[in-house]
Amino acid sequence: MSPIGKDLPRNKDSGLRLLTVGLLYLSPMLIFMLVFTFYPMLKTLYYSFYTTNAHGIPVLFVGLDNYIQLFQSDSFLTSLRGTFLYVLYTVPLGVAIAFFLAIISSERLRGIQFFRVIFSSTIGVSVAAGSMIFLFLFHPSIGFLNHVLDWIGLAPIHWLTNPKWALISVAATSVWMGIGFNYIILLGGIQGIPEDMYESAKIDGAGYWVRLFRITLPMVSPTLFFVIIVTVIHSFQSFGQIDILTKGGPAESTNLIVYSIYQNAFIHYKFGIASAQAIILFLIVLIATIIQFKVGEKKVHYQ
């Protein structure tokens, strides 16, 4: 890039000139956005109204048929129900555990830094590595979990092949992998609470629980809310753990929306249907984000 604006006095900075320079600096960003975000987003919408051939070339305009077909197919409804159930399994539990860890590690204790590193560690565990470890832990005959069940005299569970358990097992894996991220943000939120609030509460004779529920919880609630929304969005996007642990089975019980998109698009080459699913995913995430903004606005008021 050339040294724009060099040796030029300020009075030459006319509106048009500034616009040119500004856009020049923004151009890499805008070009990448155009090619890899805006164009494909519109293209996805476009595909969702078509049926395509195996090369992804749209052959027939079908209007809303792809959407209608989706909402009439048991497979998609199962996938949607599974996705919402999975979100329900992962988000409250994942956030609650991370919040608990953040609370017990926010005290100023000797060696606390060590625990904080441990609690953050799963952010460095990739989906593939984490899922491989859990695939091993869930193994029906040699997995550690069934060894434990055996020791306490219980029958082994087919964690990943029993339709009753598979989604729960995948969700448990996701909860564990998500703790690190949630923990880091929640700990930061708790540490951002001014110390003197606690001091004055203590002078008033407030005990630990009162301080926790009257100060920590309300003060950290905006952060908590942020974490919940991010985790919800993230849960809707889960893919790797399903691909490694269950491949969508058994009986499609873990065929969550992104995995279903992947299968339709890249296994069955039904780009039209897959694009309609992608648009539905987009709308779900959009709604979650709008909720965040609405509530986020409110949070400014009471701070």
């Binding site: 890899f36 975000t37 164009y39 494909p40 987003m41 293209k43 996805t44 595909y47 992804g56 969005i233 809707f236 996007q237 893919f239 992104v258 998109i261 698009a265 780009f271 897959a274 694009s275 992608a278 648009i279 995913l281 987009f282 995430v285």
Partner: peptide, 9 residues
């Protein structure tokens, strides 16, 4: 925009 919504194109 979830990245998965743009992955096909």
């Amino acid at each position: 925009i979830p990245w998965e919504a743009t992955m096909i194109p």
